[in-house]
Design a protein around this nucleic acid. Structure first.
Length: 278
DNA sequence: CTCCTGACCTGAGTGC
DNA sequence: TGCACTCAGGTCAGGA
């Protein structure tokens, strides 16, 4: 479900609810999601303060006092909701943390829901972060300084697969998923079937810019709500209204009005305009 | 290395 | 209503 913009939306919403506050209680409703949860997770985070919240690719990193890091990945169907009174937990609400009241006396209850349980949670020492199996091999952040047209062009140069599947590789660029790859390729006017190594020069520049612009616009709208994603405050992600091609097979291309096409590549659906994207 | 498939899991939607 | 089937925003392990 959640790609970079949705995860960033969650992080930003969690800031006021968690940053600088103490975890006063934690509930963990099962012992595994995609993988086993850390043993004694609830006990190990209760009583700690939240020093900060970062995002890396599609992971949220909650920095706790005592140099511990609580890592959260939302998988396909994960979502986070913030409540200010004790919520009634539903079937797929697996974890809840209660935060000490803020300056106005308002507590916060942060609930992690994940019906398909493709998400995961880990807890580890901050010193182990750079070697963490899930973090160590991630490529640069597309909205960070390391990502540039030159970097992208260098990555694509040796890749023989279609650009659609190459851009889903988190080791090259971290945080893109199925929605934003389709949208960025549309913005760049590049066909999802095009061999990655054939994208050079101006086309690579245009693609890098399209990736950045698409992600920024989606973050500004609170992400894209299709099925599961809601912002932690309960709002939908409004970028769904701006999708040009994703999920719109048969509808008119917003540029040329030709019907949007779709195909499956490496098991994932792609959407594109065969007239505007070459 | 790179590329693809299958696996993990539930729920929503569709067609009969 | 019910059943069978397909598909869904991710990514890892395993094999070619």
């Amino acid at each position: 479900m959640p790609e970079l913009p949705e995860v960033e939306t969650v992080r930003r919403a969690l800031l006021p609810a968690m940053q600088g506050r103490k975890i006063t209680a934690a509930f963990v409703g099962r012992d595994d999601l995609r993988w086993p949860l850390p043993p004694d997770l609830a006990d190990r985070i209760t009583g700690r303060h939240v020093a900060g919240l970062d995002r890396r690719a599609k992971y949220i990193l909650i920095r706790l006092s005592g140099d511990e890091v609580l890592l959260l990945h939302l998988g396909m169907s994960g979502s986070v909701r913030i409540h200010h009174t004790p919520p009634q937990l539903a079937k797929h609400d697996h974890v809840m943390v209660e935060m000490a009241p803020d300056a106005t006396g308002q507590p916060a209850f942060v609930v992690f829901r994940d019906p398909r349980r493709f998400g995961w949670i880990d807890l580890f020492s901050a010193t182990a972060e750079s070697q963490h199996k899930l973090l160590a091999n991630l490529g640069p952040e597309p909205l960070g300084n390391e990502f540039s047209p030159a970097y992208l062009a260098a990555c694509l140069k040796t890749r023989t697969g279609p650009i659609k599947t190459v851009l889903l590789n988190q080791q090259l660029v971290a945080g893109l998923g199925n929605i934003y790859v389709s949208e960025a390729l549309f913005r760049a006017g590049i066909s999802p079937r095009r061999r990655a190594s054939s994208i050079r020069g101006v086309r690579a520049d245009r693609l890098a810019t399209a990736i950045i612009d698409t992600l920024r616009a989606a973050i500004a709208d609170g992400g894209t709500s299709l099925r599961d994603h809601v912002q932690p405050g309960g709002d939908i992600g409004y970028f769904v209204q701006r999708l040009a091609v994703y999920g719109r097979a048969g509808e008119p291309c917003p540029t040329c009005a030709a019907p949007v096409q779709s195909l499956v590549q490496a098991g994932r659906r792609s959407f594109y305009c065969s007239h505007c994207q070459r």
